[in-house]
Structure formats: C-alpha cells, structure tokens
Design a binder for these strands. Structure first.
Length: 194
DNA sequence: TGCCCGATTAACT
DNA sequence: GTTAATCGGGCAA
C-alpha cells in the first residue's frame, strides 16, 4: 500500500482505496473517529454523480485525487467523498460512517444528541458531527483541517451492495468494518449460490 | 421553463 | 410502516 498522507494513496483503483480506508482514522478540526463504512463510485456506472459528465456541483470529482468532494443531499444534508484514481476518472469514495473517538463533546453539540451510536452513523450525520459543509468542497485531504492516519491493526472487512441508490444496485461496492455497531445499516448475510 | 427525482434523516403512525 | 424537509441536475416541452 502506498504511504499514508501522500496523494499517491488516493491515485489508485477506487475500490482498492475504499477497502483500505476501513479502520483508518479520519479527523476534521480534531473531531472524528475510525472509518467504519464507505462506498465506491466511478463515472462508468450510472449511480455516480459524475456519470453524465462534469457540472458545477461535481467538478471536484473530475479534478486530481486526494481532495474532498462535498455535495448537498436531498437539499438538506452534506455528504463527504474522497476523490480517487487519476484526474478525469471522476471516481470517489463516499464516507458513510465513523466510530467516534475524538472530539466527542464537539460532535455531540453539533448533532444535538448524546447518543454516540447516532453521532456519525450515516453520511449526513457524519458531516453534521464534524462540521463539514459545502465551503469545504475541494480541500486537500493531506493537510488541515483534515487529518488521516492508517489503521493501527489489520481489520476484518465486510462487502455488500450500496445503499440508497436505484441504479447499478448489484455492484458490491460497499465496504464495512465487520461487527461494528456504528454501521449506517447492517450488511446482508452471505448467501450460498442456488 | 417546469417537473420529477435523488449517494438522507427524523419524526411521525 | 410513512412522510416532510428542500435544492440542484436532467430531461421534456
């Protein structure tokens, strides 16, 4: 795996980056936790915002890897992505859940709840807890206010289909920390072939 | 220009 | 289980 905190980490296949992010620590202004759930998106599949080409909203996805793509979801929430691969590949990893470890008081205040399980379990909740909004769209991930550090130990990973989409629903591009209480939804149990 | 829908969440019944 | 909140993109006219 390429060195952490270097842009080369993100300049790889978006699914490889997504898998390697599970268990890593993400902090924003000192608040955050272990990444527990992510999804990969690529312009070649129709669920991606970049599928129909660049617009004002998704421009960052078409830029260089190692930057934050932040967009508004349902007109209400913000969602955080990490741009991957090469400039123009328009691929990104959606950060869907964290296990809170740092700055829990600040995150609880921004979220308006003390329930730790609901602080960062879901892409909208996570951005609200960390204080991430559209003004942070395009920021580099290798300097403040972002801080990423690698998983301290190898982690068990579960894989399944992505959530909340209607296109390309069968691609198993969702990655989670096995057994975590902080997943936004459980992963479906493995199935034997019929 | 107008209309529909979405990488969501919380507050309902 | 259902629904409202709310805005940018895509597409039809």
């Amino acid at each position: 795996m390429p060195e952490w905190l270097q842009r080369s980490f993100f300049a790889r296949d978006v699914n490889a980056v997504a898998r390697d992010l599970i268990g890593a620590k993400l902090l924003f202004d000192g608040a955050g936790g272990r990444i527990a759930e992510v999804e990969a998106y690529h312009h070649t599949e129709p669920a991606a915002h970049s599928h129909n080409g660049p617009t004002a909203r998704n421009a960052v996805m078409f830029g260089p890897p190692g930057h934050a793509y932040v967009y508004r979801s349902y007109g209400i929430h913000w969602c955080l992505n990490f741009v991957c691969e090469a400039s123009g590949s328009a691929s990104a990893v959606l950060i869907r859940a964290l296990e809170p470890t740092d700055g829990i008081a600040a995150m609880s205040r921004r979220r308006g709840t003390k329930n730790e399980r609901l602080l960062c379990s879901g892409p909208g909740r996570l951005c609200q807890a960390l204080g991430i909004t559209g003004v942070h769209n395009g920021l580099a991930l290798d300097r403040r206010p972002f801080a990423l550090s690698p998983p301290p130990v190898a982690v068990a990973i579960v894989i399944g289909p992505r959530i909340g989409i209607t296109k390309a629903v069968d691609l198993p591009w969702r990655y989670g920390l096995a057994e975590s209480r902080f997943l936004s939804k459980p992963f479906p149990p493995p199935r034997k072939s019929p």
